[in-house]
Computed example of a mutant assay.
Amino acid sequence: MTRSICLNADIGELPGEAGRALDRAILRQVSRCSIACGGHAGDTESMTQTLQMAQEFGVLAGAHPSYPDREGFGRSRNNVSAAELATSLKDQVSDLLRIAAATGTQVRHIKPHGALYNDAAKDAGLAGMVAALCAETGIPVLIGPPASQMERAARVSGLTYVAEGFADRAYEADLSLTPRNLPGAVFRDAESQNAQALSIALRHEVITRTGETVPLHVQTLCLHGDTPGAAENAARLRTVLEARGVTIRP
């Protein structure tokens, strides 16, 4: 049986030439990318360049909106009201769409960032807001965690949902990501990342932080662009997966 999986990365999050060089290296390895569009990181220059690089490498590009929290890198809602948040998210995605139209590129999906991603996975109201954002902006694909409120909202809204797993993050027993303030929440070593990627891609399961083996069915694996060694991680994980007969596809 032929196995395949999408590799995706969150990019456009680090500033300047070094940030774009990192994005370019990551884009050589992945099949989808989600581009920061101003809420937690990113500006007109980074959005323009990352969209163009994604097109150059044949990588499907999407929007990576977040709570408007540049100081905290999108890890706090900061008491933003629902109406203010909906406006901010639409502005973020619209900015990326505008740049895409000007550069002859396309925005293929939306994937929330950081705390918004985690909150919308459990909060039906936030999940509905994100799904409505897809519908309003004409973007038919939403990426998020499996068996979540986001998946339910996407199905109700008639969107295509791409369930996502993580090679470099620990999981809790309920399949939520381990909070970053707990030890071991982020896998920084190659052995742990390789093992989790293979477990998800080949056996459709993960071993949680507390030792349980839990089923996890996803169509895409995420590689965080802000994790130290991200470019090397992406290249190594692609090699490891392909060596086990897994085809990387969008």
Rank of each mutant, 00 (worst) to 15 (best):
N194K: 15
L221T: 02
Q49M: 13
C6L: 10
V59W: 07
I35Y: 06
R3P: 07
V218Y: 04
P145G: 12
V156P: 08
P65K: 05
P179A: 08
A154W: 01
N233C: 14
G245I: 07
C33T: 14
R77A: 15
R20F: 14
S148P: 04
A86N: 08
P215F: 00
P112T: 04
G211F: 03
M53E: 09
M47N: 04
R155C: 11
G144C: 10
A127C: 05
G128R: 15
A190T: 04
G125K: 13
P146S: 07
H109S: 01
D189A: 01
Q193T: 06
E151H: 11
L142N: 05
L198V: 01
Q52Y: 03
V130L: 15
E191R: 13
A18V: 14
T210M: 10
L22K: 12
Q193S: 02
E242C: 08
A100P: 03
T2W: 12
G42K: 06
T44A: 15
H109G: 00
E191D: 12
L177I: 03
A231P: 00
P68Q: 08
R180G: 03
Q92M: 00
E212N: 07
M47K: 07
R244A: 06
T137H: 11
L14A: 12
G184A: 02
N194M: 12
A243H: 08
A41H: 10
I26D: 07
A41R: 09
H224D: 00
R236N: 06
Q219H: 09
G74Y: 01
N118T: 09
T87R: 12
M1Q: 12
F166Q: 02
P112N: 03
V130E: 08
P15A: 13
A201E: 04
N194L: 08
A25V: 09
C37T: 04
P179Y: 06
L14I: 14
L216M: 03
T160G: 05
A127R: 07
A115E: 13
S176W: 09
A102H: 07
T2Y: 12
C222R: 00
A100E: 01
K90A: 14
G165V: 01
D69A: 04
S66A: 14
R244C: 10
N118C: 08
A83E: 15
A153M: 07
L177W: 08
Q29R: 11
I99C: 06
F73W: 00
S31T: 11
D95A: 15
S88T: 02
N118D: 08
V130N: 08
T87A: 12
E71R: 12
H113W: 00
G184D: 01
D91S: 09
Q52K: 13
E242Q: 15
A243V: 03
A170P: 02
L221A: 01
V240A: 14
E45W: 14
A170T: 02
S88L: 00
K90Y: 14
A102T: 05
Q219G: 13
G19E: 05
A243E: 08
A127N: 05
I26Y: 06
A132D: 14
N194C: 12
R209H: 15
E191N: 06
A124N: 12
I139P: 10
R169G: 04
R75H: 03
A173P: 10
S94M: 07
G128S: 10
